[in-house]
Write a protein that binds this DNA or RNA. Structure first.
Lengths: 226, 226
DNA sequence: CGCAGTATTGATCGAGATCAAGCGAGGTGG
DNA sequence: CCACCTCGCTTGATCTCGATCAATACTGCG
């Protein structure tokens, strides 16, 4: 980590669009943002570890952060946070230690919120509680979906679903560019990197062409069959 | 389902102890409870299905409810709700359709909250938003834990963990009685019933004796090694 | 008593993890 | 400029876990 800075106005604007501040009025939003500073982390930096006492929660401004549980040679990713996602908000309501570890992928800029300050704010601006609840709702739903998918779909199906939900389609064709390396996508989907690779080759018969981070889908409907 | 009734005072007391009403004062709690009625369901009854338009969320008063996704011959359980647990609260904040199906196991009594009324209440008693956020926090954490466990532990380890977190121990020995049938426990742990059975036999070498729903653990520490 | 749903046990199969080796692109230094 | 190294990705071989199918025992209930 390299220092804490005031949020730039561009960063404030970015946060204004994030889920965590949705449905808040100007005053409430300003109050919430007054608890935050901008911080940076480099690739592989660990923001915090499971069970550590928690002082902050975060919202991603740029880059990607992975949340994972377990230690040394037996870890499982629980979520990959993209710009606009927040994590650790649940600690505003309950608990005083992190329940997972967090690590920056590539170069990352985050808004860091002081937990104690936000907790204090809650009494004065109780609607902030609802804003946090909205963010938690979304997290809960996506985590449940992930769990259900893990339990009932094969690796190919999960990869196909990822492609279909992240591609920009032009007619029957579509394409996308992975925003991070394949290792990370593999972990997000609960796979070993080799398994992701194999899933991609298997999907070649369904019209998926992969070269580096660029992926082309020849027929969206064919892919949906999987 | 068989009719809707006013909450009895015993049921109100039960709800007062539930997470969803924690940290609320008397007025807020009464306001929230005024949106609720008691309903009953019999074994296997389906409360609602995925994608159905949502009008209510629920809190379990007695019995068990399973939440699951997917349809016909390919479904995965996402959560098993016990007395005191609520489900569907996330719809107060966002979305208008259920994201999973819900089915009663055995005989069940639920408090059924009217979503529209609770939403309206939110403006007047904004702290109810925080109460919901607290409940969502807990759900999110337990779902993440479940996901992480699915991804890094074997069936034996998950069963051992379940036993250890649900038994009442007396020294090195411990015991418990399953509150539901084994099929349900299997699904909760993301296993086929046969796999649960095999996990139990495998754990016999670690001092676990199973007879019907009664389970005895000869040495808690031995089990922790797994 | 007999039936239906539930639990166990055995045999087989397949998905994905793991281990190990080869490949290709980007970066560094001679 | 090219040899060399590193790191991420791919591919192949093998192994393990758990799903699935099928047959049998067990339990509770009308």
């Amino acid at each position: 980590m390299s220092g804490a800075f005031k949020l730039s106005s561009a960063q404030q604007a970015m946060l204004g669009g994030a889920l965590i501040t949705s449905n808040l009025d100007r005053h409430e939003r300003d109050a919430l943002l007054s608890c935050a500073v901008a911080v940076r982390y480099g690739p592989q930096d660990v923001l915090f570890r499971e069970h550590e006492k928690a002082h902050y929660f975060y919202c991603v401004l740029s880059g990607y952060v992975r949340l994972y549980r377990g230690s040394e040679e037996r870890e499982a990713d629980v979520s990959i946070c993209e710009p606009g996602d927040s994590f650790g908000e649940c600690l505003v309501l309950a608990g005083d230690a992190y329940n997972y570890s967090a690590q920056a992928m590539e170069h990352v800029i985050l808004a860091r919120f002081n937990l104690a300050e936000v907790k204090a704010l809650l009494a004065q601006h109780p609607r902030i509680g609802s804003a946090i609840a909205r963010s938690l709702s979304r997290h809960l739903l996506s985590t449940m979906e992930c769990l259900a998918r893990d339990r009932m779909q094969t690796s190919q199906q999960r990869v196909a679903h990822y492609l279909l939900t992240h591609c920009t389609s032009e007619g029957a064709r579509a394409s996308l560019r992975l925003p991070f390396q394949k290792r990370l996508l593999a972990r997000k989907l609960g796979l070993a990197p080799e398994a992701l690779s194999r899933a991609f080759s298997a999907l070649r018969t369904s019209g998926v062409r992969v070269s580096g981070r660029a992926i082309a889908i020849e027929d969206v409907n064919a892919l949906r069959q999987v």
